[in-house]
Design a protein around this nucleic acid. Structure first.
Lengths: 88, 88
DNA sequence: AATAATTATCGTCTATAGGCGATGAACGAT
DNA sequence: ATCGTTCATCGCCTATAGACGATAATTATT
């Protein structure tokens, strides 16, 4: 994995809310934006922005289905991250 | 480990230069600021700033010895980080 | 005591992050 | 066709990041 890509993922994880989002996504496997908005004390636009960052880093992917978007963690990317950390 | 602390570490790793610094510190065990400055195409103040961020996150510690400061990776913190990643 | 070497900090600049409300776009249901 | 739902995006604001050169602070050496 590219070091730039790695830095992007770390950066994406570099915010408490985004870590919690990742943990939540892993726990319940897949999730819709509104559900996450309900959990956190932030506006819909703020959560959407966090999800966008996570998506851009590659650690999260989102599938549009009708009016909703289903977000989930990309296990492949997560595993690559785990492997990298192990080399440290 | 506190989630705020975790986010700080991820944030600290969220920059290509800082990832490379960490890798270098692990490879050669301990290192002085000037040596890192020689490796990267950045000024001494910029590298010093990166090292400060890494130190503040806890992933790196620095010991002052005379006019030099010896930086090294805190293995305990690194292991905690590894353990956390494994739980994801 | 003066100088050289090493690192940290300050001030400055531009760019990005992080929050918000308001609006836009896409879809389902009525 | 209209309306409600859901999400993304825009514009705005303030705070922080990231780079630099210049300067301060500390120490070893001469």
């Amino acid at each position: 994995m590219d070091i730039e890509q790695l830095a992007k993922i770390f950066k994406a994880l570099g915010h408490p809310t985004r870590i919690k989002i990742i943990e939540h996504l892993i726990n319940i496997n897949t999730c819709v934006c509104g559900e996450i908005v309900d959990i956190f004390p932030y506006s819909q636009s703020t959560i959407s922005q966090h999800l966008k960052l996570l998506k851009e880093s590659g650690i999260v992917c989102g599938e549009v289905e009708g009016p909703k978007t289903y977000f989930c963690v990309d296990k492949t990317v997560l595993n690559t991250l785990k492997q990298y950390i192990e080399t440290l």
